[in-house]
């Protein structure tokens, strides 16, 4: 799996910002052609690249030193239905379930969410970013620990789409 969906997204962004006419990338037989010419798409976007597994990236598998704080390891729920969708951390930061220490959490298990529903906060050096659900469904699990560090791509909550 040399090219992940996130890699392709990043490449598209890089390409957009570059002013290049064309970017042709070939890794292990997978080809990616980005072109500013709309007619160039004939052999672009090979199925192999776009069909890369869309399942949640297995995050936080990096080695952890014994002495360092635990990064809010996901609770090992083996029986998670395949239809559930994770909401992933947009970057590394501190995970907060509520807008303020004494406020109720944005969402709890069982809550109904729409794409615009705010589900948590990620703090980076006192800068707080609201994370939205991005999907309609029901909150089935909150995997990240309140006040703990989460890494980019870590699963924060699981949503059962409706």
């Amino acid at each position: 799996m040399p090219l992940k969906p996130s890699d392709i997204e990043a490449l598209v962004e890089l390409f957009d910002a570059s002013g290049w006419d064309e970017l042709h990338l070939e890794i292990d037989g997978e080809e990616l052609l980005l072109s500013s010419d709309s007619r160039a798409g004939v052999r672009a976007a090979p199925a192999t690249a776009t069909a890369a597994p869309v399942a949640a990236p297995v995050a936080t598998s990096a080695p952890v030193a014994a002495a360092t704080a635990d990064a809010g390891a996901p609770s090992a729920t083996s029986a998670r239905p395949a239809s559930w969708v994770p909401i992933a951390a947009p970057n590394l930061g501190t995970f907060y379930r509520a807008p303020a220490p004494d406020a109720p959490p944005y969402v709890s298990v069982g809550a109904t969410v729409t794409p615009e529903t705010e589900v948590c906060l990620i703090e980076v050096m006192k800068l707080f970013t609201t994370v939205r659900a991005g999907i309609s469904g029901i909150v089935r699990e909150v995997t990240a620990q309140d006040g703990e560090m989460v890494e980019y791509g870590a699963e924060l909550l699981w949503i059962e789409p409706t």
Binding site: S6, A10, A59, A62, P63, T68, P90, N91, L92, Y152
Partner: peptide, 13 residues
């Protein structure tokens, strides 16, 4: 892999 611990900051960019 070599570091005692690695944390992922953000996407590739």
């Amino acid at each position: 892999q070599y570091a005692d611990r690695a944390v992922v900051l953000g996407p590739a960019q």
